[in-house]
Amino acid sequence: MFKTILKPFSKFFELQAKTHYRVERHSMALTFGIILAAGVGGFVEIAPLFTIDDTVEIDPDMRLYTPLEQAGRDIYIREGCYACHSQMIRTLRDEVERYGPYSLAVESQNDHPMLWGSKRTGPDLARVGEKYSDDWQVRHLVDPRALVPESVMPHYAFLLDAQLETDSLPDRLWALRMVGVPYTDAMIENAGVDAVGQARPESDWADGVLDRYGQETAVRTFDGRTDLVTEMDALVAYLQILGHLTDLPQQIQPQAEE
């Protein structure tokens, strides 16, 4: 049966086999053949994403991550949170109703790398910012099952005792500028003190954060500890900004109610 189906193509197979029979004697012919065959698809799918203008929406008012939030994002990555939480609300009715307006490309345009995720062992976090209080987030991270008995999330109590390392933040913001995030010289220079300032509203450094990152920046003692700026401060600051870098999704999708 197999042979009857393939019969009309026999000439093509014959030619193909004969050609291949000659080509497969040369390792370099195979090498270039493989690179060519495997190169086409990736090029056609990826290259235009950099050149076609409407791939990413434009929002001139898009906010940047503050150093504290970026430090929190790095902790989010370090702890592998992306393995269980997506940050990408798909264009499906139930997702929009559960999590909020579907995600736009512009929202992650400064995310190096993106954290869209591939698995929801826990819920999507694209719009989790300000959905819960700082206190809830801290208590949930310290002991998830105290607040959500069914949860299978690991606890991260140690973050509350870990002092946030801020010395490397200027370097980190510099590297981010190298890959395209528009941080200014002043932002890079003051990254360390800005991180501390954002978690210390009463300190002199707090004003600098508002100057450089906008008056709407959340300047709070995120983890409730006034003696130490901790990794918990950074992570909660990051979680609270998720979904609030731009208003574009809400403007484009006014019908979707959160």
Partner: peptide, 15 residues
């Protein structure tokens, strides 16, 4: 620590 050369949608596709 390093930061990916790509971001957002291009990074997602490359990844």
């Amino acid at each position: 620590k390093s930061y990916s050369a790509f971001s957002g949608v291009q990074d997602a596709m490359t990844q």
